[in-house]
């Protein structure tokens, strides 16, 4: 009889990282602690040679290629690691999937700062009533652009990263800038 396998460091990190991501996307607006700061742990947990990835920060390129993923332009990317975002128009290029296959919409990771900046009110699945949260570090017009792009169930799903904290923003979340 085979013995019980043990989890190596990569498995433990990927498991804990995904646990945080799933929790965050299930509760939009509530920050969740990641085991490690930054995108690399997310890339290792989610991305491999079956993925098409856009890396906005050149420092992430070797991390992405190490996973075997193909580097592509934004409109082809199923995973977009935008880094810090200065240009809201970039959102226009994100893949939104189709009515038939909403899952073709991209997963987008953007750096932000929590607790400063614009106050937004979130409602929708995962939110008990409404949640108000302050999210800074995003360019002007960001929220308007997001709202324009999402034609539910078509759209993209965002993970906002502030060091080792993550906030999930599924396409199902309605965002009102206060």
């Amino acid at each position: 009889m085979l013995t019980t396998p043990t989890a190596d460091a990569a498995e433990r990190s990927a498991n804990a990282t995904f646990d945080a991501l799933l929790w965050a996307l299930s509760r939009p607006g509530l920050p969740r602690q990641l085991p490690q700061a930054g995108e690399p742990a997310l890339i290792a947990a989610l991305v491999d040679r079956e993925c098409h990835v856009y890396a906005g920060d050149p420092l992430l390129i070797p991390v992405v290629t190490q996973c075997g993923a193909k580097l592509v332009d934004l409109p082809q990317a199923d995973h977009a690691f935008l880094g810090g975002l200065t240009e809201p128009e970039l959102l226009r290029q994100l893949r939104c999937g189709s009515d038939l296959y909403p899952d073709d919409g991209a997963t987008v990771v953007i750096r932000a700062r929590f607790g400063t900046g614009a106050q937004v009110r979130l409602t929708g699945p995962g939110v008990n009533g409404a949640v108000d949260v302050q999210i800074g570090g995003l360019p002007d017009g960001f929220w308007a652009r997001r709202a324009e792009m999402i034609r539910y169930p078509m759209g993209f799903d965002m993970l906002l990263l502030d060091a080792a904290q993550v906030i999930g923003l599924p396409r199902s979340t309605k965002v009102e800038v206060l």
Partner: peptide, 23 residues
Amino acid sequence: SYGFLDASAKRELRRKMIKAVCV
């Protein structure tokens, strides 16, 4: 592998679970 499934199978499931939660 730990948890029987290999790492690539788990990553695919993670990607799809994210989409499932988001829609």
